[in-house]
């Protein structure tokens, strides 16, 4: 059992076997280390890859961020911050796979992004955009598992169907790790900042999150709310237990939660439309 886990970890940490990283990201990485690089300069680099820019702008204009009509990469960088744009550039290949192979998971991720953004804004938390991004990415581990262990994935799906298990439990039983941990490995191998990798790694176990517990708590609750509303398909249909520590760390109260549930439905209609539009007008620029 343990072999599988380390084998999988090796595959993931070896970036060569992962979906291609846009070359632009490397250029961007070397630029951000140089403090003098201006946003314009960085935007120019990203814009030089038109497919990538189109995909980033599409995400930036998704309901998960709530901006709409961001039409240039430099605007996106100013509004969302360079970290977030870089992270979206890194994840475009994963999102693309999600969109093509598992629309349900894509909708689930967009939904959690929207719910997290809603919670963060209601609670006036700092770094809303980072929270939305972490929420969009929280299940990337599932994409990697289905890409790299397709046989095991069939077994996992079978176990969920036959025994009514949580996906996470089925993963633990079959590959001795779970999508949260796998997502965390991926985030590390991409050198994502802790504020993004922690919520991905610990969205099922908020207490483990040390430095970014608030962000992790938001993603945890957003995930539970989206599963409760039955939006998208994250692999199993069961609402996870909402952890008391997440509720406490965000100082949630019932009135606020009721407000969020009401507003969420409104937003989910938008997400559904966004997802339908994407499928309809699929920008197959490649």
């Amino acid at each position: 059992m343990d072999n599988k886990r380390s084998e999988l970890k090796k595959i993931i940490m070896d970036t060569k076997t992962l979906p291609t990283l846009p070359g632009v990201v490397n250029k961007l990485n070397s630029l951000t280390e140089n403090d003098k690089a201006s946003v314009q300069e960085m935007a120019r680099i990203v814009s030089s890859d038109q497919v990538l820019s189109a995909r980033i702008l599409r995400l930036v204009n998704s309901p998960s961020y709530g901006f709409y009509r961001v039409s240039t990469i430099s605007n996106a960088m100013i509004l969302l911050g360079i970290d977030v744009v870089k992270c979206l550039a890194l994840s475009t290949s994963i999102f693309e796979i999600m969109e093509k192979n598992s629309l349900g998971l894509w909708e689930h991720s967009l939904g959690v992004g929207v719910a997290a953004n809603l919670i963060a804004r209601k609670l006036s938390l700092p770094e809303c955009e980072e929270i939305s991004t972490a929420a969009l990415l929280h299940d990337i581990g599932k994409v990697i598992i289905s890409l790299k262990c397709s046989e095991a994935e069939q077994l996992i799906r079978g176990a969920i169907q036959d025994h009514g298990m949580y996906m996470r439990d089925a993963e633990r039983e079959i590959i001795d790790t779970d999508h949260a941990e796998v997502g965390g490995w991926l985030a590390k191998s991409w050198f994502l900042p802790d504020k993004l990798s922690e919520p991905i790694t610990f969205h099922h176990d908020v207490a483990q999150s040390g430095n970014h517990r608030i962000k992790t708590a938001v993603v945890h609750i957003a995930d539970a709310l989206i599963k409760a509303s039955g939006f998208g398909d994250s692999g199993d249909c069961y609402v996870p237990q909402i952890q008391q520590i997440a509720w406490d760390v965000l100082k949630f109260d019932e009135r606020l939660m009721a407000e969020i549930i009401d507003e969420l439905e409104d937003k989910l209609v938008e997400v559904k439309n966004f997802s339908l539009e994407l499928q309809g007008s699929d920008i197959s620029v490649d």
């Binding site: 709310l225 409760a228 609402v239 939660m257 549930i261």
Partner: peptide, 26 residues
């Protein structure tokens, strides 16, 4: 009925149950 099924694993947890009731209300 569908909502009930989605919450079937967490019915004994008081906090999650509270959220369930909010969804029913909604």
């Amino acid at each position: 009925v569908e909502l009930d099924r989605r919450f079937e694993k967490v019915r004994n947890d008081p906090l999650t149950l509270k959220v369930y009731e909010m969804f029913v209300d909604h």
